[in-house]
Simulated assay, not measured.
Amino acid sequence: MKYTTRKPALILLADGTIFHGKAVGGKEGSAFGEVCFNTGMTGYQEIFTDPSYYGQLMVTTNAHIGNYGTQEDEVESNSVKIAGLICRNFSYNMSRPAANETLEKFLEQNNLLAISDVDTRALVSYIRDNGAMNAVISTDVDNIEGLKKQLADVPNMNGLELASKVSTKEPYFFGNENATYKVSALDIGIKKNILRNLAERDCYIKVFPYNAPFEDLQSFEPDGYFLSNGPGDPEPLKEAIETTKQILATNAPLFGICLGHQVLALANGISTYKMHHGHRGINHPILNLVTGKGEITSQNHGFAINREETESHSEIEITHTHLNDNTVAGIKMKNKPVFSVQYHPEASPGPHDATYLFDDFIKNIKESSLKKVH
C-alpha cells in the first residue's frame, strides 16, 4: 500500500539535534536506541535481523530501501533485531520475483517503527563528525521536551551487556549429526550464516547460551570451539570471558568473530574501547598482514581492541588491520590454534573475500586431531 498522506516524524539525537521525516506505513509511536549507519547497497533484510544490531536505530545510506522486498530465507535470526529504521526513500512496492512479501509487510509483522524522507546524507555526516549517540525516532513531533526526558533515561551503549537479550535460552544443534567434526559454539548473538558456513565444512555444531560454563561446552566433546558475533559492550561478558580462558587452557582450536574477537582479546588481558562511530557496511578494506593481500569485508561493530596492548602482548600476533583507521582487525595466538577477526567472513550481506577463515579453522581442527592421534 502506498500512503498518500503520511504522518510527520522526527529523529531527536541525545545532543538535541533534530532531523525530520515521515512515518513509514501506518505505524505510530517512538523507538529509542543508539543511532548508527550502514553503508551497504544491498542486504537490508539480513542487516535488520542481525543480532549484533540489537537495540540500535539503523540509518541506511543507500537511497532506496525495500525495492526488492523480503525473502523468508534471507534472515540472520528469528526476528528483526534493530530498534528502528531510518531511510531516505522507502519502496512500498517490490520488484523481485523471488520475494515473499514487501518490506512494509515484513516490518509490520515485526512491529518495527520506520521513518523515511530523511536527509540521511546530512544525518550520516553528523554522526561521522559527532559520533554515535542515543536517539529516538518518533511520530510524536509536538512533544519534544517529553521525548528528551525519555531519551535521557536510555542507557549508553558503553558498558551495556546485550548478549543475554539475543542469545539462545537452551542449547541446540545445527548441521548433520554424522559430520566429521564437532564444534561447540558460544552464542553471544550468532548469525545463521556462520552456522551454515560451518555446516558446509562438515561440522556438526552445538550452540550454547551466552553464559554457558566451559564444562557445558566441553561435554559435547568438540573438535573445536567458536565464539560468535553479538551486540553491546564486550567487557560485561564475564562468564564468556572466563569460559574462553578455560578453552585456551586446553589448547583446543578456537575461532572468534566480531564480539567473539573482543572476548578473546579480553581473555588475554587486552582491553577494548568504544569507537567514535564504529564500522558498519560491506565494503571495508582490510590488509591481511600474513599474506600481504587486501580484502573487502563486511563489518558491524562499535567496539575494538587496544592496538598498543595487542602489539606488546607476547602471546598475540596481529594478523589483519583495517586500512581506513589502522584498528586491529584480526589476531592469532602464537603457540595455540586460536585466532579471531573483527569483521564478518560469513558476510550475508557482503563480499566473500574472507570465507577462507572458516577453512583455516577446519585446518586447525584437522591438525589438532592428528596431534591427538600421534
Rank of each mutant, 00 (worst) to 15 (best):
K274V: 06
H277Y: 14
G292H: 08
A252T: 06
K22F: 09
D15S: 08
Q262I: 02
L107F: 09
K148G: 00
T60L: 15
S138N: 10
G84P: 08
K182S: 14
A99K: 07
N300G: 14
H344L: 12
G350Q: 11
L13W: 05
V35A: 13
H322A: 07
K206D: 00
K105V: 12
A185Y: 02
H276F: 01
D142G: 00
L162G: 02
V80C: 12
E315K: 14
S77Q: 01
F48G: 03
Q150W: 01
V35W: 01
E311Q: 14
Q218L: 13
S228K: 05
N38Q: 05
S167G: 09
N211I: 00
F358A: 06
D153Q: 12
M133T: 15
D117N: 13
P155A: 09
L186S: 04
N111T: 05
K22V: 11
I205G: 03
A9I: 10
E235L: 12
T355M: 11
G278R: 06
L151K: 06
T244P: 02
K332Y: 03
N93V: 13
A240F: 05
N67H: 11
V118M: 03
P8G: 03
S312P: 03
D50E: 09
E221D: 15
L113T: 08
F339C: 06
K169P: 07
K336S: 13
T102Q: 03
Y356K: 13
P349H: 08
P209C: 08
L85D: 04
T244I: 02
E367Y: 06
N229G: 15
A163Q: 05
A132E: 11
S184Y: 03
P345Q: 04
I296Y: 04
A114P: 02
G302K: 07
H320W: 04
A14H: 14
S298M: 08
K7C: 10
H64E: 14
S167K: 08
N300T: 12
L323M: 13
Q246P: 04
E239Y: 04
P213A: 03
